[in-house]
């Protein structure tokens, strides 16, 4: 570091280096063009609120004052325009300008709509088509607020959970671990093989909509039964190693496992197995198998977390979009009924 030390003094005397312009492109839709639409929405909020407070119609605030009509027209226009985002974002070939700007406007002007719609009602609510349209609007906006928050919070958590990998590679990895577990179990004994096959059949990725959203997945009893099985096997190996050491060297051929008394038979089989193949090797294989099963469990859990996070990221659209369609229908009915029946 001699160079740097020697030159640090030099540098202190010199004026600051040139600064590089910040990348224009890299902005979140929340702060697009220096939060242009946030500022616009705030300004309109203040303006509309002031007008509403100052305005004092004879029969009280309602949709049928000049302000009420004004807000109603603005609100209806806004609703149609906000819905147009669905068309705009699919017009890949014809439309121009970044969608990011549209989304930014959609968020802030959508929030403003809550104020416009509410003031338009003049707080006159009841059991009628007009209030239905209002309630639908509030629901659409509420689901939208959830969406905006989810978009702000969840993406980074998905990335964190994936640890730099892709979902697809995680699934491939699970399959690979399954294969490895099977071939390791093959080297232990048929019983281990059967247990591993059963555990593979029981792997569950994802689940019902409710499980996905809550992130609480029904666990199969598999983990516990696997644990107990391996604990038993380990013990068997421990016994087997002791027994094998005590066995006379002369006997070279393993005895076939006795048919009766399955448990003790397996132990005897394992003992012979270990005697022939070397106890270390079998124990090493078992440890490897345990490690593989543990790795797989961790991976399955992470995949399920991923499914949950992505479900939470997109669930709101299943409300937001159909409710918007209903809102458009109700809005039409509201407008028609006001003009035809009034």
């Amino acid at each position: 570091m001699a160079t740097v030390d020697r030159l640090r003094g030099l540098l202190r005397a010199s004026p600051g280096g040139r600064r590089v312009e910040k990348l224009q492109a890299h902005e979140s839709f929340f702060t697009w063009r220096r939060s242009y639409y946030l500022k616009l929405a705030l300004a309109l909020t203040v303006a509309i609120s002031l007008v509403y407070l100052v305005h004092d119609p004879a029969e009280g605030p309602s949709g049928s004052t000049w302000l009420g009509y004004g807000l109603g027209t603005a609100g209806a226009g806004l609703i149609v325009w906000l819905s147009w985002l669905g068309v705009r974002k699919r017009s890949f070939t014809t439309a121009r300008g970044p969608i990011q700007g549209w989304l930014s406007a959609h968020v802030y002007l959508g929030l403003l709509l809550l104020l416009i719609g509410t003031l338009h009602t003049g707080f006159q609510l009841g059991f009628n088509i007009h209030t239905l349209a209002y309630v639908l609007m509030v629901l659409v906006i509420a689901s939208g607020i959830y969406g905006a928050v989810a978009y702000g919070v969840l993406p980074a958590r998905i990335t964190l959970n994936r640890k730099g990998g892709e979902l697809r590679s995680m699934l491939v990895e699970i399959e690979k671990l399954n294969d490895t577990a099977l071939s390791l179990a093959d080297r232990i004994d048929p019983e281990a093989h059967a247990v591993v096959v059963r555990s593979i059949a029981k792997i569950r990725l994802g689940g019902s909509a409710w499980e996905q959203l809550t992130g609480r997945y029904r666990s199969s009893d598999d983990a516990r039964s696997l644990d107990s099985f391996f604990a038993m096997k380990k013990q068997q190996f421990g016994e087997a190693v002791g027994a094998a050491r005590a066995r006379p060297q002369a006997q070279s051929k393993p005895q076939p496992p006795p048919a009766a008394g399955m448990r003790s038979g397996t132990t005897m089989f394992v003992i012979d197995h270990i005697f022939d193949r070397g106890s270390d090797k079998a124990a090493v294989t078992l440890n490897k198998l345990l490690q593989v099963i543990a790795d797989r469990k961790e991976l399955v859990e992470r995949v399920n977390v991923d499914i949950t996070l992505r479900a939470r990221l997109s669930v709101w659209l299943y409300l937001h979009v159909p409710l918007t369609v209903l809102l458009l229908v109700a809005l039409l009915a509201h407008v028609l009924s006001v003009f035809l029946l009034w």
């Binding site: 590089v20 839709f29 974002k89």
Partner: peptide
């Protein structure tokens, strides 16, 4: 253009490394 959140960016790496090394 189609990225709604501004996550996708196209940069020349020189530009990116410059920014990165200046902590912006």
């Amino acid at each position: 253009q189609a990225c709604p959140t501004g996550a996708a960016i196209r940069v020349s790496p020189q530009q990116f490394f410059d920014v990165l090394s200046r902590g912006d």
